[in-house]
Amino acid sequence: NLYFQGLKYMVPGARVTRGLDWKWRDQDGSPQGEGTVTGELHNGWIDVTWDAGGSNSYRMGAEGKFDLKLAP
């Protein structure tokens, strides 16, 4: 699974964008943008601060869902 392989790169400072299971509307800005991981992966959740200004926790394994992917 590509998403599980990418988890080791989901570290503080990593750049991310919305992924396969995104369901959080425009939390990442409008139009959709990139963000920066600000915390360690914990119980399948990870913290992100978006360039647009907001921050929140997103699923990276929790509930079998992956809200994020590494930015290109």
Rank of each mutant, 00 (worst) to 15 (best):
residue 1 N to Q: 12
residue 1 N to I: 12
residue 2 L to S: 14
residue 5 Q to W: 13
residue 5 Q to I: 11
residue 7 L to E: 09
residue 7 L to R: 08
residue 8 K to Y: 10
residue 8 K to L: 12
residue 8 K to W: 10
residue 10 M to F: 15
residue 10 M to D: 01
residue 11 V to G: 08
residue 12 P to A: 11
residue 13 G to F: 05
residue 13 G to I: 04
residue 13 G to S: 05
residue 13 G to E: 03
residue 14 A to L: 07
residue 14 A to V: 11
residue 14 A to F: 05
residue 14 A to T: 10
residue 15 R to I: 03
residue 16 V to K: 00
residue 16 V to R: 03
residue 17 T to I: 15
residue 18 R to F: 08
residue 18 R to Q: 07
residue 18 R to W: 07
residue 19 G to M: 05
residue 19 G to A: 06
residue 20 L to R: 13
residue 21 D to K: 03
residue 22 W to Y: 06
residue 22 W to N: 03
residue 22 W to D: 03
residue 22 W to H: 04
residue 23 K to V: 12
residue 24 W to F: 06
residue 24 W to G: 06
residue 24 W to K: 03
residue 25 R to N: 15
residue 25 R to M: 15
residue 26 D to N: 10
residue 27 Q to Y: 04
residue 27 Q to H: 07
residue 28 D to F: 04
residue 28 D to I: 04
residue 29 G to E: 06
residue 29 G to L: 04
residue 30 S to Q: 14
residue 30 S to F: 11
residue 30 S to M: 12
residue 31 P to A: 08
residue 31 P to Q: 08
residue 32 Q to N: 14
residue 35 G to M: 02
residue 36 T to A: 04
residue 36 T to V: 11
residue 37 V to N: 03
residue 37 V to L: 07
residue 37 V to I: 14
residue 38 T to E: 05
residue 38 T to R: 08
residue 39 G to W: 03
residue 40 E to P: 13
residue 40 E to V: 13
residue 41 L to Q: 07
residue 41 L to F: 09
residue 41 L to P: 08
residue 41 L to G: 03
residue 42 H to S: 11
residue 42 H to N: 12
residue 42 H to I: 13
residue 42 H to D: 09
residue 42 H to Q: 11
residue 42 H to G: 06
residue 42 H to L: 12
residue 43 N to V: 06
residue 43 N to R: 10
residue 43 N to P: 02
residue 44 G to D: 01
residue 44 G to Y: 02
residue 45 W to K: 02
residue 45 W to G: 00
residue 45 W to F: 05
residue 45 W to I: 04
residue 46 I to N: 00
residue 47 D to L: 14
residue 47 D to R: 15
residue 48 V to Q: 00
residue 48 V to L: 00
residue 49 T to W: 07
residue 49 T to V: 12
residue 50 W to Q: 00
residue 50 W to R: 00
residue 50 W to H: 00
residue 51 D to G: 02
residue 52 A to W: 13
residue 52 A to S: 12
residue 53 G to L: 02
residue 53 G to V: 00
residue 54 G to N: 10
residue 54 G to R: 08
residue 54 G to M: 11
residue 54 G to F: 10
residue 54 G to Q: 11
residue 54 G to K: 09
residue 54 G to W: 06
residue 55 S to H: 12
residue 55 S to E: 09
residue 55 S to M: 13
residue 56 N to D: 08
residue 57 S to G: 06
residue 57 S to K: 15
residue 57 S to C: 15
residue 57 S to N: 09
residue 58 Y to K: 00
residue 59 R to W: 02
residue 59 R to H: 02
residue 59 R to D: 00
residue 60 M to F: 09
residue 60 M to A: 06
residue 61 G to Y: 03
residue 61 G to L: 01
residue 61 G to M: 00
residue 61 G to K: 02
residue 62 A to Q: 02
residue 62 A to H: 12
residue 62 A to W: 13
residue 62 A to R: 04
residue 63 E to S: 08
residue 64 G to M: 09
residue 64 G to T: 05
residue 64 G to N: 10
residue 65 K to D: 01
residue 65 K to N: 05
residue 65 K to V: 04
residue 65 K to I: 03
residue 65 K to F: 08
residue 67 D to R: 00
residue 67 D to Y: 02
residue 69 K to M: 14
residue 69 K to L: 12
residue 69 K to C: 15
residue 69 K to A: 14
residue 70 L to Y: 09
residue 70 L to V: 09
residue 71 A to N: 07
residue 72 P to A: 13
residue 72 P to C: 15
